[in-house]
Design a protein around this nucleic acid. Structure first.
Lengths: 338, 338
DNA sequence: GGATGCTGTCGAAACGTTTCGATAGTGCCG
DNA sequence: CGGCACTATCGAAACGTTTCGACAGCATCC
């Protein structure tokens, strides 16, 4: 494989000139630069990663800790992983993927061996051993999600509280006063994921503040459970005219199926909102008003924050991404009906 | 961060002694080895990855090209990705994740810069530009999936043909003669994924050979389509008593839901088999007999094969993983009924 | 016309490791 | 006891890059 000496020889200059020409850190005569570029192209030269790491102190690699917990919706998870990779590439960074069983030991290993310049943590729980480790390692790091103790951490996440408020307000503005919420799977609450309770609590609080009655049920595991969950909500709220789904896609479509089977028309009989969905609701029937969980935004911002930490121009802090409301026709004003 | 000089100093030996003690490539006195190990522990020393790469010619990193195509079932995909990482770690390899938009350019980049020792390709289509690139780059590589042209490639995959035969034979052995097959989404066939047609064609061939009548329909996109698909099959095969699902999990559960709604009992009225599912069918109702698509086996084997290529003791070849049949009670002998 | 500054280029050191070849010490054999 | 084999250790070269300091050439300025 061609190295910098080969390029220097072909271009008829010294290796330091080549290095400066490629990095742009010193001015180089246009004609010289041209010859070097030609040589690079001809030899298909790319700087040896090991040598660059060794000397340059920059590895151009980020560690991505992406454990796949039971109960986490895999497609959503995958979307985050891919978004991180894509965002990192914009800054010429590659991504090393670390998993579950290596959660802390793997992070420690790659950091101690100077294999990575920074860390991105995915799917953190309220109290996550990885956050302590990140503090200890002292490497630039960004957490996607908000753990309980954010001290010394740079975190970014959708503002789930405001998303919940947005959903409630929308329904209340339309006149609805009895509103149901189908949440995540029970497992997810138990495991200590941070966002489901954040959403739920803000939802209940805002509803109470606005004088609406609410019912909550976690997401069922299978279709039989969907029936039970809906029945449960109806029992609590006989006059329920609004429903918010903070659950994964399969559950959403099962709920819609069941409603249509029962002759409940959306939005005429029931206004439904999909909250914090990683996926578009276009293909659902009907398409649901949605407050998207924008994986690409979170991840792009996370990478930006990590890069800013390299530059040293950012202090540890928590950053919330503003939720938006997308109207697709699954909500309607409350009308009194026979 | 501590380096090998620090360890040598603390242990009171030269750096080459440290290196040999740690690599085990030359014999070291037990007492010396002990002092070195102590020093390593005390300093939390780990060899600098860049230096190791530069000198050692081994980077201990694999590139994983994992594009997420539309129509690919994300959870299954995620399972493969994580399985590759887990398997690679067993050999002390880390995994660099490459995506979609960098499919070929990214591979070329990491290889040309000697950042990775080998390549694993996921989700290859019948004619995939990445396979040509792999041939060109000449680095150890393993393909999970079977492209049309396997020349010079090391490939591993479930033996979909035998899996299809297994499914057919099971049903025919039980006396069923009219058998339906619900396949993957149309998109998946169009895009040129290799395994869906492999399964379908072998399925049809084996059924024909055994004298069974078959009907085939691709997987629908949503629940409305499931109805249509089932109705279509019933129209083709009015006496259908066996059904094979070669489709993703959501479709499987939608099919079961619909069957139960229609009062079709599994397995009394209809014997159902889940073919090549990446996930357990335990939670389905009823749990389905399954021919698992063992992501961990494929990925473990892929990593083994890549390691064998490093050692130079394996020639390019295609390797099939034997399917197994897991009985969970969703098939029953055909009984004549009123 | 000598001092000053700027531009473009070069040589050499340094990064941390692995590994080759050398060597000192020890035990054994003839 | 000289020679040999073997063990344990060391010194130094090499991997390919980045970057510091040097310097030649040239223009500019009092």
């Amino acid at each position: 494989m061609a190295n910098i000496h080969d390029v220097a020889r072909v271009a008829g200059v010294s290796i330091s000139t080549v290095s400066y020409a490629l990095s742009g850190k010193r001015s180089i005569a246009a004609s010289t630069k041209q010859r070097i570029d030609d040589a690079v192209l001809e030899l298909d030269y790319r700087a040896n990663a090991g040598a660059r790491m060794l000397k340059g102190a920059r590895t151009q690699i980020l560690a991505l800790s992406a454990p796949l917990h039971a109960g986490t919706h895999a497609p959503a998870h995958m979307t985050f992983v891919l978004s991180v990779v894509t965002a990192a590439r914009k800054y010429d960074y590659d991504v090393l993927l670390l998993t579950q069983d290596e959660a802390t030991s793997g992070l420690r290993r790659v950091v101690r061996s100077s294999l990575v310049d920074g860390i991105v943590l995915l799917d953190v729980s309220t109290s996550d051993p990885r956050t302590d480790l990140v503090r200890e390692l002292g490497l630039p790091a960004t957490v996607i999600g908000i753990p309980d103790d954010t001290d010394g951490l740079t975190c970014v996440d959708l503002d789930f509280e405001r998303a919940a408020e947005l959903a409630v307000r929308r329904l209340v503005d339309l006149g609805h006063r009895e509103i149901g919420l189908i949440g995540q799977a029970p497992l997810v609450y138990e495991r200590g994921s941070n966002f489901p309770p954040r959403f739920r609590d803000a939802f209940l609080a805002e509803a109470t503040r606005l004088g609406a009655t609410v019912g909550f049920t976690p997401a069922p595991e299978e279709s039989a459970g969907v029936r039970a969950a809906l029945d449960g909500l109806s029992a609590t709220l006989p006059g329920m005219t609004g429903l918010v789904l903070h659950c994964n896609e399969p559950v959403q479509s099962m709920v819609l199926d069941l409603l249509s089977q029962r002759g409940v028309s959306v939005p005429n009989d029931l206004s439904v909102i999909s909250a914090c969905s990683s996926f578009s609701t276009d293909h659902l029937n009907p398409p649901l008003d949605v407050i998207p969980l924008p994986a690409d935004l979170s991840c792009t911002r996370a990478i930006e924050l990590t890069m800013a930490q390299f530059a040293g121009d950012v202090e540890p802090h928590v950053e919330y991404i503003d939720p938006t409301y997308v109207e697709l026709g699954s909500t309607a004003p409350l009308t009194s009906r026979p």
